[in-house]
Computed example of a mutant assay.
Amino acid sequence: MVDINKQYVDGEWIAGSGSRTFASENPATGETLGEFRRGTPADVDRAVEAAADAFGPWRERSRIDRAEYLWDVYRELRERTDELGEIVTRECGKEISEGRADVVEAAHMVEWAAGDARHPNGDVVPSEIAAKDAYMRRKPRGVVGCITPWNFPVAIPFWHMAVTLVEGNTVVFKPAEQTPLCAQIIAEMFEDAGLPDGVFNMVQGFGDAGEAIVEHDAVSTVLFTGSAEVGQQIQDALGGVPGKRAACEMGGKNAVVITEHADLDIAVHSAVMSSFKTTGQRCVSAERLIVHTDVYDAFKERFIEVAESVAVGDPLDEGTFMG
């Protein structure tokens, strides 16, 4: 079991202002994986202040220079894929091949973001005056709050943070309270990469810490992946704040459509995968099957047969389909 862990703020591991802790538990076994310090709004203030102070020097670096730190993270993700994949499975409950895939997806995202730093970017715009050049140049926005969910506890944080950091912003990261151990390791990776103090900060905790990030005046942008309810609250909170932006990726009410011309072998297996992979708990999972009346009976019979064969069990067992 991991001992009680702290917040990562301004290049240091700190206990923070609160004394409350919470446990990370394996949902398949009830095993306690670690005890974590619950962050407070005061801890968020300290993290945001550190990120704001670090923003100026960080934005002055070139994209290529900033990306060099990400390459170190990429190499560590690759080297520790099996180890971290098992931790993903033990902490969030999805089966082991998906646990490893979560880490591989994170590595792919970091690879893309760091590699893109060496590509030319920008736009030249036609001008009505022949002798005048007009162009658009993208600039970093400032402190970005990254609030992530439990079901992809390594991949989604890097969706949020890899491009954000390469483009010159600084980060305050609030992971899901169900997967703090994965977040702990992510923070350790950034520390190993030697990012300048304050560029990356992490505050573990619950909704009050997330709310403090959203409402902080020095946070220019909020990136959120999670429930529709919380995403709507974030959008409502920032709707009237000039210059402040939020990008919220929330749950869907997704459908698989089966036409009368569908190949039922493909359709049935695709529908089962979409419904039950990741234990059915991802934003793109199918919650509805819309089946043409001409193939309804045949599809239904075959879907039930395949669904009943889904192996539910220990997510660390390679033969398990659904944790």
Rank of each mutant, 00 (worst) to 15 (best):
K253C: 08
G99W: 08
D116P: 04
V2D: 10
T278A: 11
D192R: 15
A307T: 03
D197W: 11
C248V: 08
T81A: 14
V291C: 00
F299Q: 00
V222N: 03
K174M: 07
F158V: 08
E191Y: 12
R302C: 10
G319A: 09
S274T: 05
V103E: 06
E31S: 07
G323D: 06
D208Y: 10
L84S: 03
F36V: 07
F200D: 00
G251Y: 01
Q232G: 15
A52Q: 13
L289R: 03
Y69P: 01
W159N: 08
F190C: 09
F276I: 03
P175L: 14
W71H: 13
E191N: 13
G115T: 12
E191M: 06
A286P: 06
F158N: 09
R137D: 00
E287R: 15
S19Y: 08
G198P: 12
F55G: 06
E95P: 15
E177A: 05
G99H: 06
T179L: 10
P157Q: 03
N254S: 09
T279Y: 15
V214S: 12
R288F: 05
D192T: 11
D116K: 13
V219E: 14
R46F: 14
M189I: 06
A54S: 10
G122S: 13
V103N: 07
A267C: 13
L238N: 04
L165G: 04
V291H: 03
A267P: 06
I290A: 08
W150I: 09
F224V: 01
E35W: 10
S309I: 02
R78P: 02
D82S: 13
V88H: 10
R61V: 03
S309W: 07
R46G: 06
V241A: 05
R20M: 05
V310G: 12
V222F: 04
I87N: 04
L181H: 14
F303M: 08
A262E: 01
C146S: 15
F200V: 04
V144G: 01
D53N: 14
S275F: 12
P157S: 07
H119E: 11
R90I: 07
T89P: 07
G16R: 11
D82N: 14
E98K: 13
A106P: 06
W112R: 10
N5G: 14
L181R: 09
H292P: 12
V310D: 07
S127R: 01
F276W: 10
N254T: 02
D263M: 09
K277W: 14
H269Y: 13
G115D: 05
L316A: 02
S309K: 14
I129L: 00
P242W: 03
W58R: 03
D116E: 14
R75D: 14
R288M: 02
A52H: 11
E318R: 15
F200T: 05
I96S: 05
A176F: 01
V306P: 02
E86C: 04
V44H: 05
I266T: 13
A47F: 06
A193W: 07
V44F: 01
F206Q: 12
D236F: 08
E91T: 07
R63P: 10
G252K: 04
T279A: 14
D102I: 02
F173L: 11
